[in-house]
Design a protein around this nucleic acid. Structure first.
Length: 422
DNA sequence: TCTGGGGTCCTAGGACCC
DNA sequence: TCTGGGGTCCTAGGACCC
């Protein structure tokens, strides 16, 4: 069946523009957490040659020279605008939400797929303010190829249907192998070393060679390029396997107590995510690491995992386990730059088993936890928190920087955009 | 002084089972 | 002296995605 990939153009940068029309035509960049490096660029910023992933401190001069608008990432805003876009798409066709800014649509039965794509593009723009591109192909991988060509061709204007197209081979020949969905850095090196430089060449490659060097994943990829679907549309989200929360620190942290506060806060965040999805965790991993780019010391990660006595989503129980795992990892004198928490062995809270010797009153624990979540939803994250997560939030050195954050225009009463008339 | 975070799947090897 | 076949589960590491 024909599959469409709908992809939001420069999504985070486009989100920043929706409620800030003064940004139209101006180069916009969005930074990673901790304001570390560039994770999204408007077309104007791309034209200026600002690379994806480049650290902010290396481009300060260009930011000033070209009056580039700089934003910290505002996932509250992006998540809400993403949901709006996905709502529009889901009204148009059966829809698999693939990521925050992409969805696959099942175009079975659509007669004029290009016209469908253009109409969808207009509707999404009018209803949400977000520009999208639409690529159509016989498989997901071919839809991805069509989408990337649609974005870069002025003639296509963001919509391209390659299903049954006489130009398919020509199109594939124009796509460097590195840009094929599923081909990353390591496989690019491998393929180019073997003389396979384009999507077309990969499609024609020897299956035994591919199988030997790229395993079953590569094998599927070649099939997908040949128009044989190996990655079916999935309209129901698969149950998740893990929940993580990890953050780089605002600056290096050496103090054990501060590491403890950070880990406790990350546990609390992960706990919220867990409960929101009705899950409990059976295992927990904590890790701390030194700087990746620290010249004076090697980058090292220390981690500790443990099974929980009974699967739980209770922040108090999770925090106890996390802190107990953390202490033995900490070495005095080291400069830590990041910590994280991973919850695993997830299962549905409704089906969870309690521990054999577990005498806790779980119903009561759950009511306490629900009350805490309610307060924090109403009054803001961290209004009620464990002492372990620290008492002096504002001055904690480990907190990540976010110095260029836009308002949460659509999800917070105090930050609604104001419109003045007359 | 400053370089992100959150995921999935596959593979190989070892321990263990009958 | 001879030493199979078929399987599961776990873990660590590597690949990829956005």
């Amino acid at each position: 069946v024909p599959v469409a990939l709908v992809d939001c153009n420069n999504f985070y940068a486009s989100c920043e523009r929706v409620f800030n029309p003064a940004l139209a035509g101006r180069p916009v960049i969005v930074l990673s957490n901790n304001d570390g490096c560039v994770v999204a660029r408007s077309n104007e910023a791309k034209t200026l040659g600002l690379a994806m992933g480049v650290p902010l401190f290396r481009i300060r001069d260009r930011v000033a020279r070209h009056d580039i608008a700089v934003f910290s990432s505002n996932y509250t805003l992006y998540g809400d605008l993403s949901a709006r876009v996905m709502d529009v798409l889901a009204q148009a066709a059966p829809c698999e939400i693939y990521s925050i800014d992409e969805a696959f649509l099942d175009l079975r039965g659509v007669a004029d797929r290009a016209a469908f794509g253009r109409a969808l593009q207009q509707t999404v723009a009018r209803w949400t303010g977000i520009p999208v591109s639409v690529g159509v192909g016989a498989t997901k991988t071919l839809a991805k190829v069509a989408n990337s060509l649609a974005k870069h061709s002025t003639r296509a204007a963001g919509v391209l249907d390659l299903t049954d197209s006489p130009y398919l081979d020509e199109a594939l020949a124009r796509v460097p192998v590195a840009e094929v969905w599923g081909v990353g850095r390591s496989w690019t090196r491998l393929l180019e070393g073997a003389g396979i430089r384009t999507a077309l060449a990969l499609r024609e490659a020897s299956l035994t060679w591919v199988r030997r060097h790229m395993g079953v994943v590569g094998h599927r990829l070649v099939y997908e390029l040949r128009g044989v679907s190996c990655l079916p549309l999935e309209f129901a989200p698969r149950p998740r396997q893990t929940v993580t929360c990890a953050r780089s620190f605002g600056r290096a942290v050496t103090d054990r107590a501060e590491l403890g506060e950070a880990v406790a806060e990350y546990v609390a965040r992960a706990g919220v995510k867990l409960r929101r999805e009705g899950l409990v965790a059976g295992a927990l991993t904590v890790w701390i690491e030194t700087g990746r780019h620290d010249a004076s010391a090697e980058h090292t990660v220390w981690s500790a995992s443990r099974a929980l006595e009974a699967a739980t989503a209770d922040t108090r129980a999770l925090t106890r386990a996390a802190v107990a795992s953390l202490w033995p990892l900490v070495r005095p004198g080291l400069r830590y730059r990041k910590a994280g928490v991973l919850l695993g062995e997830l299962s549905c809270a409704s089906e969870a088993q309690s521990g054999l010797y577990d005498a806790r009153d779980h119903a009561r624990d759950a009511r306490v936890q629900a009350a805490v979540d309610d307060v924090n939803t109403r009054w803001g994250r961290g209004t009620l928190r464990l002492g372990a997560a620290g008492l002096t939030q504002a001055w904690q050195a480990w907190r990540a920087r976010a110095e260029h954050c836009s308002p949460r225009y659509t999800t917070c009463w105090d930050e609604l955009p104001l419109v003045r008339a007359g």
